[in-house]
């Protein structure tokens, strides 16, 4: 297989990631409706597929309002940060053999770094809005995402130990025989939970919490700035699903079908799982969230790392 030109890869990944996340808005609404015995949007176009287009027109033509009590420069920068950090992470994602924008030898660390920078978007949006609820949302986001990042990184170290590299392409190649979901099942579960928390999805959507914080950090946002948070969230879950597929489910590896199709099937399955989580689980309380992170997940991640390390050493 010939390697495509880097710019072609960049454009391709950008287009696919953005259109996939836009399409996800429709998928989420339809699937939530399915699990609540409803229909969801089915009026605009075939199966309501053009609903995304209608939403986009709406969001583009809305008034782009900056509240007078907001800190204007930070208020404007915040939604851009989330888009930039998430899209940057897509750069190191090996989609199929040869289809990767930048095959960094520290790809995994790059992903972790970008996801940790993504917190700023939420925190600064909450602070710059000059609104108590938004500030509370930002504070929650800061506490939640730092805590969950710690064991997110630790849960991945088992995979790194097994593969012996931070290079995502090499990690996928190393799973040719056995997907890491089997030897690293605990790590897989931990990363899944941390990923949900990183993407701020239910049951960990404390920073938004419509019921108590009136949409939290993005209460004051409107128009395309809100749209960027919205698309950023869907890009985030696409990214987390892709990372799960790459790190634990063997990326593009799979019999019969072409690699790209396998990758997309795995990613889509996890996207659906994320939506299923939203459909079924209630939001946690904040102290429950923090104690789950630090008292359950963190020790489990450490144990996982220690046991994996011991086994890897013993086998050598």
């Amino acid at each position: 297989m010939t390697t495509p030109h880097p710019i072609a890869s960049i454009v391709g990944v950008l287009i696919v990631a953005l259109s996939l996340s836009a399409f996800l808005i429709w998928v989420e609404r339809r699937l939530l409706a399915l699990w609540q015995d409803r229909y969801g949007p089915n009026r605009v176009g075939p199966f309501g597929l053009l609903q995304v287009l209608a939403d986009m027109i709406k969001i583009f033509t809305k008034e782009d309002w900056i509240p007078p009590f907001a800190d204007k420069p930070v208020f404007v920068i915040a939604p851009a940060i989330i888009m930039v950090t998430v899209l940057m992470s897509f750069a190191v994602l090996p989609v199929a053999p040869g289809i990767v924008v930048s095959d960094l030898n520290i790809g995994l660390l790059f992903f972790l770094g970008m996801s940790s920078l993504g917190v700023y978007s939420i925190v600064l949006a909450g602070w710059a809005s000059g609104n108590k609820y938004s500030l509370l949302g930002g504070l929650r986001a800061a506490a939640q995402m730092i805590s969950y990042e710690v064991f997110m990184g630790l849960s991945l170290m088992g995979v790194v130990l097994l593969a012996g590299t931070f290079d995502l392409t090499a990690i996928v190649e190393a799973q040719r025989g056995l997907w890491y979901v089997i030897p690293q099942f605990l790590g897989f579960v931990l990363f899944l939970i941390a990923g949900v928390a990183e993407a701020r999805r239910l049951p960990f959507d404390l920073p938004e919490a419509e019921a108590e914080l009136v949409a939290g950090f993005h209460s004051e946002y409107s128009g395309m700035k809100f749209g960027m948070f919205f698309v950023g969230e869907y890009l985030g879950i696409t990214l987390i699903s892709s990372m799960i597929a790459v790190l634990f489910l063997g990326g593009w590896n799979g019999p019969w079908l072409p690699p790209l199709v396998w990758f997309l099937i795995k990613v889509f399955a996890f996207l659906c799982f994320f939506i299923l989580l939203r459909a079924s689980l209630p939001r946690m309380r904040f102290d429950q969230l923090m104690s789950l992170g630090w008292k359950v997940m963190f020790p489990l991640a450490l144990v996982n790392l220690l046991v994996t390390g011991a086994i890897v050493l013993a086998k050598r």
Binding site: I106, L109, V123, A142
Partner: peptide, 26 residues
């Protein structure tokens, strides 16, 4: 030194300064 660069981003920019921002916000 790509590893040091990544750790700089993850630890300093991603965790420690977030805590600074957290405190300043409070």
């Amino acid at each position: 030194a790509p590893l040091v660069a990544a750790l700089e981003v993850i630890i300093y920019a991603g965790a420690i300064v977030v805590l600074f921002v957290f405190v300043v916000m409070m």
